[in-house]
Design a protein around this nucleic acid. Structure first.
Lengths: 240, 240
DNA sequence: AAGTGGTCTAGACCACAGA
DNA sequence: CTGTGGTCTAGACCACTTT
């Protein structure tokens, strides 16, 4: 049983198993794309029944942490190379194909967060944030300009081309699991900056997407406010 | 084993069980709010293992067809009295509380669908549709005006206060299970009708929500185009 | 043929709700 | 106390993938 259990634990065994396996992935024991040991092996290793291992792995598949393929194995998802995150909230082109556009970094800064940033991200006064302004282009025209604010404490590792990061990949790099996101949708009036970015006149009504992404522990990871002017693009949401 | 199985069936046993149980609910053998027989009873009745019954019931809970409560039982969800459908796509007030507004029917008609309606709903030329125009008010002001188009063939039973129907309840009444929905979000310019409904001037930019709801068999159940002018309301979407 | 995850079984015990 | 769903076990066999 190793370090699991001690019976009468408040948490069911299969959830403890899930936590142990997730931890091993998060710390890099099993890296993105890697194959996990098979169910029998894991069960023997942990000294538990194969059914319990299965339940933990099935849960992890629902959480999009691993992918299981009959006859092949169980694989750690790689968010750096896959569009696995939030697959139900996307821009599409007029043929219905998903697009994410080309991200183009405009400015990056790091400083103590402002009052609203502190509030939206659940930080403390004085906490530092990383602030990024960037635009998205498709195919040749800018359809979205966004300001992203991230708590600096969660993101100690930053890739080189930081301006074009994808949060799912950035979180993976920093051993964080993405949980959920809340997005508020409304209409705003383009200011001078938006107008210049989007190629419209100031005052043009644009779609505003105000989104906060949370980790699996409910820590806010990113507050993003995007302004969009859609020509050939469509913003689609899928509910299940 | 009754009418199940015959071994070598392409479909796994627990899915066949799920289908049988869903069918019993849909035809009214177990009505909304009713308690299902316990797992042991169902297993004996169907001549299968309790584990297989559990897997079917767990699936049905994920599909939001039943609710399971330890120590109490398994209950058929009642979509007429619960806000169980699409809980992640809602209007909220400024305090973050969910609101659906008061629905106010404006007109109802039934006639052969137009070309675009036929296309969006996947119907055949000549198929009849039910067309409803209505507005939503909260608390005293209209924030949304919508046109809903439903294929007449799916909805033979209609409640009295049809103008204020909720699709989940209407589907339940007609033995249909709601599956998913696709919604397109963009900005439109208020026409004379929208302007009058929403209390704005013609040409005011409004949020347009163009949504198609599908059944669990991927039949289109409703095409709705809504135009919204939000004062105190907020349109929130949650992703997982 | 060998190895993987997927299905199915049969039973034990636990945690919770209600009488 | 009784009955419910929740957890856990141990093992058999199936379906799929790769060697």
């Amino acid at each position: 049983m190793a370090d699991l259990d001690t019976r009468l634990a408040a948490r069911p065994l299969y959830l403890q198993v899930r936590d142990v396996l997730v931890q091993r992935i998060v710390v890099g024991h099993w890296k993105p794309g890697a194959t996990l040991p098979n169910e029998t092996h894991l069960a023997q290793q942990l000294g538990i029944s194969i059914g319990t291992v299965r339940k933990a792995l099935d849960l992890m598949e629902v959480e999009r942490i691993v992918t299981r393929r009959q006859g092949r194995g169980t694989f750690v998802n790689d968010y750096a190379s896959a569009e696995t995150i939030f697959p139900f909230c996307m821009f599409h082109n007029s043929e219905g194909r998903r697009i994410s556009g080309v991200k183009h970094g405009r400015s990056i800064s790091r400083e103590p967060g402002g009052a609203e940033e502190i509030a939206r991200l659940g930080l403390r006064r004085g906490d530092e944030v990383i602030r990024i302004e960037r635009v998205r282009t498709h195919p040749d025209q800018t359809f979205m300009t966004e300001v992203c604010v991230l708590p600096a404490k969660f993101f100690t590792r930053l890739p080189e081309d930081f301006g074009s990061y994808r949060l799912s990949a950035l979180a993976q790099l920093n051993s964080i699991l993405v949980g959920r996101a809340d997005e508020r949708v409304d209409i705003a009036s383009a200011n001078a900056q938006h107008a210049a970015d989007l190629g419209v006149t100031e005052g043009t009504p644009v779609l505003r997407l105000d989104r906060v992404i949370f980790s699996d522990h409910e820590d806010a990871l990113e507050w993003r406010v995007a302004h969009c002017f859609m020509r050939n693009e469509r913003y689609l949401v899928r509910f299940n």
